[in-house]
Computed example of a mutant assay.
Amino acid sequence: MGTPDQTSGESVADRDAAIQAHNAALHAARHADVAVRELSGIAGLRAVSDLFAAVWGRTPEGVPAPSELLRSLQHSGGCVTAAVDHSNRLVGAAALAVAAPAGTTYSLIAAVAPGLGDRGIGYAVKQHQRWWALDHGYHTMAWTFDPLVARNARFNLVKLGAEAGGYEQAFYGRGSDEINGSDETDRLVATWRLDARRTVAASTGPPAEPERPPEPAAPLASGPDGQPILYQDETGRWCRVPHDILAVRRSEPDVASDWRLAIREIFMQAFADGFTATHVTRSGWYRLTRAGDR
């Protein structure tokens, strides 16, 4: 980790946050049995580009992140992070850009090699990104994610401790890759406050498991599968997404589109009403709360 400059105006709290993040990143890498580092050199960036293509697929426009683009990202102050195993095989990677407003970074893309999704590699990569950002004076990271992919949503909001308070309709237009299919690509906007208490807590131990929604309560809406999709109680609102939307997209694309429209309506109304998505249960229920109720 870089040594803080005593004359730079960096506070003790900033240094402490970076040290905590560095220790958390090292622990996560050990747990995943990988080495995580910032890349330099075009050969490594080409390998990262190939990994992104293996995970996200290719579109008529080409690979998701060409190596030339990743090199330019580095040159402009961003970071490309790679995780390698003991045989020096690339098993995970992510690209991070400097963003506005000041003190913010933006996570452009991240991936773990196919078949290795349960080893904690993605978590180790994100913790390394967190440390890098804090060590360079950034305190917030933002990115977008598909609200219908429950497992990814749980990783972002529970495992990392991010929150989501914005919704973008058709963010990338219509999908044209192997994961998104051909439907509109709606996205939730995640905000990860890198030195917040919930982020620190998530980096140091198992995440707190949110309670299940109040099953006996009358649902406010039902989903395309005919089951309850929205509840509200004294703690906030609860919104359910499918267990495996990727399978639904492959087998029943029209039903997947119905899910997207239903979830779009629920989230946009919730955000307009002042709610933020803060948790996702293992069964795919988002918990949405107002700031004063957390």
Rank of each mutant, 00 (worst) to 15 (best):
V255D: 11
A270I: 11
T281I: 07
T281N: 05
L261T: 15
R290T: 13
V248P: 00
I266Q: 09
M268H: 04
G274D: 07
A272N: 12
D258F: 03
E252S: 13
D254P: 01
T289N: 04
A256S: 11
D244P: 01
R249G: 03
R290H: 08
F267V: 07
R250D: 10
D254V: 12
I263A: 01
F267N: 05
G274R: 00
A291M: 08
T276F: 00
A262I: 03
L261K: 15
A262N: 06
S251R: 14
G284V: 09
P253W: 03
D254F: 00
R290L: 08
I263C: 01
R249D: 06
R249K: 13
T289Q: 12
F275I: 08
R250A: 12
F271Y: 11
H279T: 08
S257E: 12
F271L: 02
Y286G: 05
V248I: 15
A277R: 00
I263P: 02
Y286T: 08
G274L: 03
G284T: 08
R260S: 10
W259A: 05
E265C: 10
G284Q: 05
R264M: 07
W259V: 13
W259E: 04
V255S: 10
R282V: 11
E265F: 05
A247I: 15
L288R: 00
A270R: 00
Y286C: 04
Y286K: 00
T276N: 03
I245C: 01
T278P: 06
Q269A: 15
E252D: 12
D258E: 15
T289R: 03
V280G: 07
P253D: 09
V248K: 00
H279G: 04
S283H: 12
Q269L: 14
L288S: 09
V248G: 01
I245D: 00
L288H: 03
F275V: 08
T281E: 06
A277G: 06
F275G: 05
V280M: 15
D258P: 06
P253F: 06
Q269G: 15
P253L: 05
R260V: 13
A262H: 08
A291T: 13
D254W: 00
A270P: 02
T281D: 04
D273K: 01
T278M: 00
G284K: 11
Y286I: 12
D258S: 14
A272Y: 03
I263R: 01
L288P: 04
D273M: 02
I266L: 15
S257P: 05
I245W: 00
A272V: 04
G284R: 09
A291I: 12
R290A: 13
D273W: 02
A270S: 15
T276K: 01
V255T: 12
S257W: 08
I266A: 13
T276Q: 03
R290E: 13
R264I: 08
D273F: 04
E265G: 15
R264A: 06
A277Y: 01
L246Y: 08
L288T: 12
R250H: 10
S251F: 09
Y286R: 02
F271M: 01
I266M: 14
G274V: 11
A256L: 02
D244Q: 06
T278R: 06
E252H: 13
G284I: 09
A277C: 05
D258L: 11
I245K: 01
E252M: 09
R264C: 04
L261Y: 14
Q269W: 04
T289P: 01
L288W: 06
R287A: 10
D254N: 14
S257V: 13
F271V: 10
G274T: 11
